[in-house]
Simulated assay, not measured.
Amino acid sequence: MSAILDAILRFKLDNRHLSLALEEAGSGSPYQADHYRWWHRTLRDTLRRIPGVPDDDFTAHALLAATRADLVEHLVGQDGVTAERMRSQLANYTAKIVDG
Rank of each mutant, 00 (worst) to 15 (best):
residue 54 P to K: 08
residue 17 H to V: 01
residue 19 S to W: 09
residue 46 T to M: 05
residue 17 H to Q: 12
residue 59 T to L: 10
residue 21 A to F: 00
residue 65 A to D: 03
residue 25 A to T: 09
residue 39 W to G: 01
residue 57 D to V: 13
residue 25 A to M: 06
residue 21 A to K: 11
residue 22 L to V: 10
residue 26 G to H: 00
residue 48 R to W: 13
residue 45 D to V: 08
residue 54 P to S: 03
residue 59 T to M: 05
residue 57 D to P: 03
residue 25 A to K: 09
residue 16 R to T: 10
residue 45 D to T: 08
residue 16 R to Y: 06
residue 22 L to H: 07
residue 40 H to K: 11
residue 44 R to S: 10
residue 28 G to D: 02
residue 22 L to A: 05
residue 56 D to N: 08
residue 19 S to Y: 02
residue 41 R to D: 08
residue 61 H to C: 11
residue 40 H to P: 05
residue 33 A to K: 15
residue 40 H to L: 01
residue 44 R to C: 12
residue 24 E to R: 05
residue 57 D to Q: 15
residue 30 P to R: 07
residue 29 S to K: 11
residue 55 D to I: 03
residue 16 R to N: 02
residue 55 D to F: 10
residue 61 H to Y: 14
residue 36 Y to N: 03
residue 66 A to Y: 02
residue 30 P to C: 11
residue 34 D to I: 13
residue 59 T to G: 02
residue 30 P to G: 12
residue 57 D to K: 14
residue 32 Q to R: 05
residue 16 R to W: 04
residue 15 N to C: 04
residue 33 A to S: 10
residue 19 S to H: 07
residue 33 A to M: 14
residue 46 T to N: 15
residue 47 L to Y: 06
residue 27 S to H: 07
residue 50 I to Q: 14
residue 53 V to F: 07
residue 22 L to P: 00
residue 22 L to E: 15
residue 34 D to W: 14
residue 15 N to E: 05
residue 43 L to Y: 02
residue 58 F to C: 04
residue 55 D to T: 08
residue 34 D to S: 13
residue 29 S to W: 00
residue 28 G to F: 07
residue 66 A to R: 14
residue 33 A to F: 12
residue 26 G to Y: 14
residue 62 A to G: 02
residue 38 W to S: 04
residue 55 D to L: 04
residue 35 H to M: 07
residue 35 H to A: 05
residue 34 D to R: 14
residue 53 V to K: 07
residue 61 H to A: 00
residue 38 W to F: 03
residue 36 Y to H: 09
residue 21 A to I: 00
